[in-house]
Nucleic acid binder design. Structure first.
Lengths: 161, 161
DNA sequence: CAAGATTGAACCATCAATCTTT
DNA sequence: AAAGATTGATGGTTCAATCTTG
């Protein structure tokens, strides 16, 4: 087990980058959430769900698949869908092939909501995130995020790969 | 007001980078939170509060200043401090110079908690975030995050600067 | 009245337990 | 028993209202 004395701390530049990341990520999330909520009465979570449904060919998806692609717990998704259904944004449908399963479908109202919200959201992303970055920086961010995602995927946290 | 037709969407590489960022950030937060909670019974929020208190010369900070540096709402901080106080991690102290104000101080137990948690947390950050990045990539991330933070700071979202 | 901070209600997320179908 | 999904309880977050002191 690691103690205070045998730990390799982050070096100075890593420290700076990590702090910047933590703060940036927190503020950016807050801003994006506020903008969506103020302009469209949607939370970032609502938006994520609606994007997945819109991307889907039939405008409907199995609940478990939705949970996988959002990386949410089943329980969280179930509660969230309940609230979105109560607001008329989505609808639950039965699954013919497997009676245990269920579909979620986007409603007309849900479609109107995301179509109204998306342009302003994209503008905000562009203005807050991409505005001052060069093409080379964007490319490097992409490469870095992809590597980090690969580290994150394995699904088991404890063992050092 | 923007409509679906006059919006500039993100180009393909921006799309990829943005999706990667959103997913990466969500999973990384989840992992870091789970690791802290499992190994040290602290949430990321608890950790953030304790870091600020530890960084402070007197191990105590005015509540409002803490709210500023964490970028939290007063209300959220107040509720959170209440719970942390109940767990013995922090203590509230009166402010002599301004009787409206209050100090928060870290307790011995709080100090033990963060000293126990920090090494494993840092190891996790190193393993999940920095492990596969080159020095050049880290430098570019730092530059990019700093620019984005500058965009985020101005405090007023609506007007296009 | 404004500033510093706390409180209560409503909403969201997480965990364990549950229910139904395979 | 395991898979797909929902539910209830508990703790976390936000918003508006409140309280006290400057």
């Amino acid at each position: 087990m690691a103690t205070m004395n045998d730990v390799r701390w982050l070096d100075e530049s890593q420290q700076r980058v990590w702090r910047a990341y933590v703060v940036m990520q927190g503020r950016l999330n807050a801003r994006l959430g506020q903008q969506l909520q103020n302009d469209s009465e949607l939370s970032l979570s609502d938006f994520g769900v609606l994007v997945q449904l819109t991307d889907s060919p039939d405008a409907r998806v199995r609940v478990l698949e939705l949970a996988r692609s959002l990386q949410w717990e089943k329980s969280r998704l179930s509660h969230h869908l309940g609230r979105m259904q109560k607001r008329g944004l989505v609808r639950r449908e039965e699954c013919p092939s497997d009676a245990r399963g269920a579909f979620v479908a986007i409603t007309d109202e849900g479609r109107r909501a995301i179509e109204q919200a998306a342009p302003q959201h994209v503008e905000t992303v562009r203005r807050l995130f991409f505005a001052d970055l060069t093409d080379a920086e964007v490319a490097t961010l992409g490469a870095a995020f992809t590597k980090i995602l690969a580290r994150l995927d394995p699904a088991d946290p404890p063992p050092t790969p």
